[in-house]
């Protein structure tokens, strides 16, 4: 240990140390520059949403609003053509339902692949991961045709039926469940528990962390989804938030104060969720290779 410390010290004589101090300063300067570039678009959005209808039209634009006002938000909330609560409800319904289904299927199938031996297990695992690795743009067209056939176009269930199995979720759960001791399961079996009871009573309660991670990722993915909802839903009252945002934008493209306020209202919920679950979210993304 002493040699290591000595080696570290040797690599920095007095002159070097001064340079190192400046280097440290540079590091922070660069990080803060990066930080402000990351935050600037958010700030610009929020500031613009607080400007009045006349101020927003000024050229060149002001940066800080002269008289910050919440009027734009009130306009949006009171717009009879824009029942926002319903759209929040639609988005929430789709996201929460998909989260519940994904958590259930991922943990159950992960349990199966982690703790049971049966013929064709590896083939099954490989085959069915393969079917899920095909990019969504390819299955989008037949998916639409199927929904049209079974009458699920313009139904929120159309945004749910195809996402019941999640390859990443199954991987994650299998990995986690493999680390649970077999003795625990055998002990419960000796006590007369059925295999389903093992799942509900023994396995599921141990899965807190991976369930939280997977749940948050699935929620965000669905909350932000744009292409597939746009394909499936055309009726205004069934739309989810991202589609309603672009629609609102096309109606008010000359009033950025309103569209920016609408963007804030649609972006904010997920940022609040993120604020509380930051650690889980980042960890989940690091593990996944899945993108929103």
């Amino acid at each position: 240990m002493a040699t290591i410390a000595a080696a570290r010290a040797r690599s920095r004589p007095a002159f070097d140390r001064l340079r190192c101090g400046l280097g440290h300063l540079m590091v922070y300067v660069l990080l803060i520059v990066g930080l402000s570039m990351t935050l600037m678009p958010f700030l610009w959005m929020i500031l613009s949403s607080l400007k009045t209808a006349t101020e927003i039209l000024r050229v060149p634009p002001t940066f800080w609003p002269d008289n910050p006002t919440l009027a734009n938000y009130l306009t949006i909330l009171n717009d009879p053509k824009l029942p926002l609560l319903r759209f929040y409800g639609n988005s929430l319904f789709v996201a929460v339902t998909n989260v519940l289904i994904t958590l259930f299927t991922s943990s159950l199938i992960g349990f199966l692949f982690a703790k049971y031996q049966f013929h064709g297990k590896r083939v099954l695992f490989g085959w069915f991961l393969l079917t899920m690795m095909i990019p969504g743009q390819m299955t989008m067209i037949p998916g639409y045709l199927i929904l049209a056939k079974v009458g699920l176009l313009n139904s929120l269930w159309g945004l749910i039926v195809f996402s019941a199995l999640d390859a990443f979720g199954i991987f994650l759960m299998r990995q986690f469940i493999e680390s649970l001791p077999n003795e625990l399961l055998d002990a419960a079996r000796i006590d007369g528990a059925s295999e389903w009871q093992l799942y509900w009573r023994i396995v599921l309660p141990q899965l807190g962390p991976p369930l939280a991670t997977l749940g948050i990722l699935t929620f965000m993915h669905n909350w932000n989804a744009y292409l597939w909802p746009m394909v499936v839903i055309t009726k205004i009252e069934r739309r989810t938030l991202p589609i309603i945002l672009t629609w609102y934008n096309s109606q008010h493209s000359t009033q950025p104060n309103l569209t920016m306020a609408a963007t804030v209202m649609i972006v904010m919920p997920i940022l609040i969720v993120y604020f509380f679950f930051q650690r889980w979210v980042v960890r989940g993304f690091t593990m996944s290779g899945l993108k929103c």
Binding site: T38, L39, P41, F42, W44, M45, M220, W223, N224, Y226, L241, P242, I243, L245, T246, N249, T259, M260, T263, I266, V267, I270, L271, Y274, V281, F285, C292
Partner: peptide, 13 residues
């Protein structure tokens, strides 16, 4: 933060 922001929101901003 930008990663978790909805891409439609990003496009609007």
């Amino acid at each position: 933060l930008p990663v978790i922001t909805s891409s439609v929101g990003v496009a609007m901003m």
